[in-house]
Amino acid sequence: MRKIVPIFFLIPLFALSQSTSFEFHSPENIKKFADNLFCEGDYLRAIEQFELINEKLDDDTVKFKIMLGYSELGFFSESNEIFKGINDKSIFYPDAYLLSFKNQLISEPGLISASSINSFNSLQLKSFNKLNAISMLYGDEFNISRENFISPFDGDEQNSISTFYNYKVEPPYKSPALAGTLSAIIPGSGKIYVGEWGDGITSLLATGLLAFLAYDNFRADHTTRAWIFTGLGAFFYAGNIYGSIASAQIFNARIDFEFNNGLKLFLKEQNYFLPEYDFCN
Protein backbone atom coordinates (compact mmCIF):
# COMPACT_ATOMS: atom_id res chain seq x y z
CA MET A 1 0.00 0.00 0.00
CA ARG A 2 2.82 2.39 0.92
CA LYS A 3 4.42 1.79 -2.50
CA ILE A 4 1.20 2.27 -4.39
CA VAL A 5 0.24 5.57 -2.76
CA PRO A 6 3.06 7.68 -4.28
CA ILE A 7 2.37 6.12 -7.68
CA PHE A 8 -1.27 7.14 -7.39
CA PHE A 9 -0.18 10.66 -6.64
CA LEU A 10 2.46 10.84 -9.35
CA ILE A 11 0.47 9.43 -12.28
CA PRO A 12 -2.12 12.25 -12.46
CA LEU A 13 0.57 14.85 -11.85
CA PHE A 14 2.59 13.47 -14.73
CA ALA A 15 -0.44 13.16 -16.99
CA LEU A 16 -1.56 16.71 -16.22
CA SER A 17 1.85 18.18 -16.70
CA GLN A 18 1.96 16.50 -20.12
CA SER A 19 -1.43 17.76 -21.18
CA THR A 20 -1.06 21.30 -19.91
CA SER A 21 2.38 22.31 -21.14
CA PHE A 22 2.91 23.72 -24.58
CA GLU A 23 6.08 25.43 -25.69
CA PHE A 24 4.82 28.31 -27.83
CA HIS A 25 8.29 29.77 -27.96
CA SER A 26 10.43 26.75 -28.73
CA PRO A 27 12.53 27.37 -31.86
CA GLU A 28 10.59 24.70 -33.79
CA ASN A 29 7.24 26.24 -32.92
CA ILE A 30 8.43 29.75 -33.64
CA LYS A 31 9.60 28.55 -37.05
CA LYS A 32 6.27 26.83 -37.73
CA PHE A 33 4.40 29.96 -36.73
CA ALA A 34 6.71 32.21 -38.76
CA ASP A 35 6.28 29.97 -41.81
CA ASN A 36 2.54 30.29 -41.43
CA LEU A 37 2.73 34.08 -41.16
CA PHE A 38 4.99 34.14 -44.22
CA CYS A 39 2.45 32.13 -46.22
CA GLU A 40 -0.34 34.46 -45.05
CA GLY A 41 1.66 37.34 -46.46
CA ASP A 42 2.15 38.89 -43.02
CA TYR A 43 5.83 39.47 -43.78
CA LEU A 44 6.55 41.96 -41.01
CA ARG A 45 5.51 39.53 -38.27
CA ALA A 46 7.07 36.59 -40.08
CA ILE A 47 10.42 38.43 -40.21
CA GLU A 48 10.13 39.31 -36.53
CA GLN A 49 9.62 35.64 -35.66
CA PHE A 50 12.33 34.40 -38.03
CA GLU A 51 14.76 36.91 -36.52
CA LEU A 52 14.13 35.35 -33.09
CA ILE A 53 15.48 32.00 -34.27
CA ASN A 54 17.82 33.07 -37.06
CA GLU A 55 20.99 33.00 -35.01
CA LYS A 56 20.09 29.81 -33.13
CA LEU A 57 19.17 27.81 -36.20
CA ASP A 58 21.59 29.33 -38.71
CA ASP A 59 19.26 28.14 -41.45
CA ASP A 60 19.67 29.49 -44.99
CA THR A 61 15.98 28.91 -45.75
CA VAL A 62 15.12 31.20 -42.86
CA LYS A 63 17.65 33.79 -44.03
CA PHE A 64 16.32 33.67 -47.57
CA LYS A 65 12.74 34.03 -46.34
CA ILE A 66 13.73 37.07 -44.27
CA MET A 67 15.42 38.53 -47.34
CA LEU A 68 12.36 37.80 -49.47
CA GLY A 69 10.04 39.23 -46.80
CA TYR A 70 11.97 42.48 -46.59
CA SER A 71 11.95 42.75 -50.37
CA GLU A 72 8.16 42.20 -50.48
CA LEU A 73 7.72 44.91 -47.85
CA GLY A 74 9.83 47.32 -49.90
CA PHE A 75 12.74 47.38 -47.44
CA PHE A 76 15.30 46.72 -50.15
CA SER A 77 18.45 47.79 -48.33
CA GLU A 78 17.51 45.63 -45.31
CA SER A 79 16.88 42.76 -47.71
CA ASN A 80 20.33 43.18 -49.23
CA GLU A 81 21.89 43.35 -45.75
CA ILE A 82 20.49 39.85 -45.10
CA PHE A 83 21.97 38.70 -48.42
CA LYS A 84 25.45 39.44 -47.06
CA GLY A 85 24.87 36.75 -44.40
CA ILE A 86 23.89 34.02 -46.84
CA ASN A 87 26.62 31.49 -47.43
CA ASP A 88 27.77 31.34 -51.07
CA LYS A 89 27.69 27.53 -50.87
CA SER A 90 24.02 27.60 -49.93
CA ILE A 91 21.43 26.24 -52.33
CA PHE A 92 19.63 29.57 -52.02
CA TYR A 93 22.66 31.69 -52.85
CA PRO A 94 21.98 32.04 -56.62
CA ASP A 95 18.35 33.02 -55.97
CA ALA A 96 19.41 35.40 -53.22
CA TYR A 97 21.98 36.88 -55.59
CA LEU A 98 19.28 37.53 -58.19
CA LEU A 99 16.95 38.93 -55.54
CA SER A 100 19.67 41.34 -54.37
CA PHE A 101 20.07 42.44 -58.00
CA LYS A 102 16.33 43.12 -58.19
CA ASN A 103 16.41 45.02 -54.86
CA GLN A 104 19.20 47.23 -56.11
CA LEU A 105 17.46 47.84 -59.41
CA ILE A 106 14.33 49.05 -57.61
CA SER A 107 15.96 51.05 -54.82
CA GLU A 108 18.76 52.64 -56.85
CA PRO A 109 17.88 52.40 -60.54
CA GLY A 110 21.07 52.63 -62.56
CA LEU A 111 23.66 50.59 -64.37
CA ILE A 112 24.66 47.72 -62.07
CA SER A 113 28.07 46.22 -62.58
CA ALA A 114 27.61 42.65 -61.36
CA SER A 115 29.09 39.48 -62.75
CA SER A 116 27.48 36.13 -63.21
CA ILE A 117 28.26 33.36 -60.70
CA ASN A 118 29.17 29.72 -61.37
CA SER A 119 26.37 28.29 -59.27
CA PHE A 120 23.66 29.71 -61.57
CA ASN A 121 21.62 27.12 -63.42
CA SER A 122 20.55 27.91 -66.99
CA LEU A 123 17.28 29.62 -65.94
CA GLN A 124 18.99 31.72 -63.29
CA LEU A 125 21.71 32.71 -65.76
CA LYS A 126 18.99 33.78 -68.21
CA SER A 127 17.30 35.89 -65.51
CA PHE A 128 20.62 37.43 -64.59
CA ASN A 129 21.36 38.38 -68.21
CA LYS A 130 17.91 39.93 -68.57
CA LEU A 131 18.27 41.98 -65.38
CA ASN A 132 21.73 43.03 -66.49
CA ALA A 133 20.34 44.27 -69.82
CA ILE A 134 17.52 46.11 -68.04
CA SER A 135 19.98 47.85 -65.74
CA MET A 136 21.68 49.29 -68.86
CA LEU A 137 18.44 51.13 -69.65
CA TYR A 138 18.83 53.05 -66.41
CA GLY A 139 22.44 54.00 -67.14
CA ASP A 140 23.57 57.32 -68.64
CA GLU A 141 25.68 55.77 -71.37
CA PHE A 142 23.95 53.40 -73.72
CA ASN A 143 25.81 52.07 -76.73
CA ILE A 144 24.77 48.55 -77.53
CA SER A 145 23.27 47.21 -80.72
CA ARG A 146 19.59 46.27 -80.74
CA GLU A 147 20.38 42.61 -81.53
CA ASN A 148 22.76 42.27 -78.61
CA PHE A 149 20.41 44.10 -76.29
CA ILE A 150 17.30 42.03 -76.95
CA SER A 151 19.09 38.67 -77.36
CA PRO A 152 18.68 37.51 -73.71
CA PHE A 153 14.90 38.02 -73.88
CA ASP A 154 12.25 35.55 -75.04
CA GLY A 155 10.00 36.07 -78.07
CA ASP A 156 7.09 37.82 -76.32
CA GLU A 157 9.33 39.99 -74.20
CA GLN A 158 11.38 41.16 -77.18
CA ASN A 159 8.59 43.42 -78.53
CA SER A 160 8.32 45.37 -75.28
CA ILE A 161 12.06 45.47 -74.82
CA SER A 162 12.47 46.83 -78.37
CA THR A 163 10.13 49.70 -77.52
CA PHE A 164 12.19 50.56 -74.44
CA TYR A 165 15.34 50.31 -76.54
CA ASN A 166 13.90 52.81 -79.04
CA TYR A 167 12.93 55.21 -76.24
CA LYS A 168 16.42 54.99 -74.82
CA VAL A 169 18.25 55.43 -78.14
CA GLU A 170 16.00 58.09 -79.61
CA PRO A 171 13.79 59.57 -76.94
CA PRO A 172 11.01 61.56 -78.64
CA TYR A 173 11.96 64.76 -76.81
CA LYS A 174 10.90 68.26 -77.97
CA SER A 175 13.45 71.05 -77.94
CA PRO A 176 12.49 73.83 -75.46
CA ALA A 177 14.68 76.32 -77.37
CA LEU A 178 12.95 75.52 -80.67
CA ALA A 179 9.51 75.76 -79.02
CA GLY A 180 10.37 79.20 -77.61
CA THR A 181 11.80 80.44 -80.93
CA LEU A 182 8.78 79.24 -82.91
CA SER A 183 6.42 81.01 -80.51
CA ALA A 184 8.50 84.20 -80.77
CA ILE A 185 8.07 84.15 -84.57
CA ILE A 186 4.43 83.02 -84.76
CA PRO A 187 2.61 83.11 -81.39
CA GLY A 188 1.26 79.69 -80.49
CA SER A 189 3.38 77.75 -83.01
CA GLY A 190 5.71 76.55 -80.22
CA LYS A 191 2.73 75.03 -78.44
CA ILE A 192 1.59 73.39 -81.68
CA TYR A 193 5.12 71.96 -82.12
CA VAL A 194 4.80 70.39 -78.64
CA GLY A 195 1.45 68.92 -79.66
CA GLU A 196 -0.81 71.27 -77.74
CA TRP A 197 -2.95 72.36 -80.68
CA GLY A 198 -5.79 73.88 -78.65
CA ASP A 199 -3.48 76.05 -76.56
CA GLY A 200 -1.48 77.02 -79.66
CA ILE A 201 -4.52 78.25 -81.61
CA THR A 202 -5.91 80.05 -78.54
CA SER A 203 -2.55 81.80 -78.00
CA LEU A 204 -2.42 82.85 -81.65
CA LEU A 205 -5.98 84.23 -81.55
CA ALA A 206 -5.59 85.99 -78.19
CA THR A 207 -2.26 87.63 -79.06
CA GLY A 208 -3.50 88.53 -82.55
CA LEU A 209 -6.71 90.05 -81.20
CA LEU A 210 -4.93 92.11 -78.57
CA ALA A 211 -2.43 93.34 -81.16
CA PHE A 212 -5.26 94.31 -83.46
CA LEU A 213 -7.14 96.08 -80.64
CA ALA A 214 -3.99 98.01 -79.74
CA TYR A 215 -3.46 98.99 -83.36
CA ASP A 216 -7.12 99.93 -83.86
CA ASN A 217 -7.19 102.09 -80.71
CA PHE A 218 -3.95 103.87 -81.61
CA ARG A 219 -5.43 104.54 -85.06
CA ALA A 220 -8.60 105.98 -83.47
CA ASP A 221 -6.55 108.08 -81.03
CA HIS A 222 -7.81 106.19 -77.95
CA THR A 223 -4.29 106.13 -76.58
CA THR A 224 -5.10 105.02 -73.00
CA ARG A 225 -7.05 101.97 -74.15
CA ALA A 226 -4.48 101.36 -76.88
CA TRP A 227 -1.70 101.18 -74.28
CA ILE A 228 -3.79 98.86 -72.08
CA PHE A 229 -4.23 96.50 -75.03
CA THR A 230 -0.54 96.87 -75.97
CA GLY A 231 0.45 95.92 -72.43
CA LEU A 232 -1.95 92.99 -72.39
CA GLY A 233 -0.74 91.89 -75.84
CA ALA A 234 2.92 92.06 -74.78
CA PHE A 235 2.04 90.10 -71.63
CA PHE A 236 0.27 87.41 -73.68
CA TYR A 237 3.13 87.33 -76.22
CA ALA A 238 5.84 86.91 -73.57
CA GLY A 239 3.68 84.48 -71.61
CA ASN A 240 3.15 82.43 -74.74
CA ILE A 241 6.93 82.15 -75.36
CA TYR A 242 7.53 81.19 -71.73
CA GLY A 243 4.58 78.77 -71.85
CA SER A 244 5.94 77.09 -74.98
CA ILE A 245 9.35 76.52 -73.36
CA ALA A 246 7.66 75.19 -70.21
CA SER A 247 5.40 72.93 -72.30
CA ALA A 248 8.42 71.40 -74.05
CA GLN A 249 10.09 70.78 -70.70
CA ILE A 250 6.92 69.24 -69.29
CA PHE A 251 6.60 67.13 -72.44
CA ASN A 252 10.16 65.84 -71.96
CA ALA A 253 9.56 65.15 -68.26
CA ARG A 254 6.44 63.21 -69.26
CA ILE A 255 8.46 61.15 -71.74
CA ASP A 256 10.96 60.29 -68.97
CA PHE A 257 8.14 59.50 -66.56
CA GLU A 258 6.34 57.28 -69.06
CA PHE A 259 9.58 55.49 -69.88
CA ASN A 260 10.45 54.83 -66.23
CA ASN A 261 6.90 53.98 -65.27
CA GLY A 262 6.39 51.73 -68.28
CA LEU A 263 9.63 49.92 -67.56
CA LYS A 264 8.69 49.52 -63.90
CA LEU A 265 5.27 48.10 -64.81
CA PHE A 266 6.80 45.76 -67.37
CA LEU A 267 9.34 44.49 -64.83
CA LYS A 268 6.63 44.06 -62.21
CA GLU A 269 4.52 42.07 -64.66
CA GLN A 270 7.53 39.87 -65.37
CA ASN A 271 8.32 39.65 -61.62
CA TYR A 272 11.75 41.04 -62.49
CA PHE A 273 12.42 37.79 -64.36
CA LEU A 274 12.67 35.94 -61.05
CA PRO A 275 10.79 32.71 -60.34
CA GLU A 276 7.81 32.69 -57.94
CA TYR A 277 9.17 31.13 -54.75
CA ASP A 278 6.61 28.78 -53.31
CA PHE A 279 7.31 27.85 -49.72
CA CYS A 280 3.69 27.25 -48.82
CA ASN A 281 2.56 24.19 -50.79
Binding site: F22, F24, F33, R45, E48
Partner: peptide, 11 residues
Protein backbone atom coordinates in the same frame (compact mmCIF):
# COMPACT_ATOMS: atom_id res chain seq x y z
CA UNK B 1 -1.21 41.63 -29.47
CA UNK B 2 -1.98 40.62 -33.06
CA UNK B 3 1.14 38.43 -33.16
CA UNK B 4 0.20 36.62 -29.96
CA UNK B 5 -3.45 36.14 -30.93
CA UNK B 6 -2.31 34.77 -34.28
CA UNK B 7 0.12 32.44 -32.49
CA UNK B 8 -2.72 31.16 -30.32
CA UNK B 9 -5.01 30.61 -33.31
CA UNK B 10 -2.24 28.83 -35.20
CA UNK B 11 -1.45 26.32 -32.46
Amino acid sequence: AVTEFKRLLFF
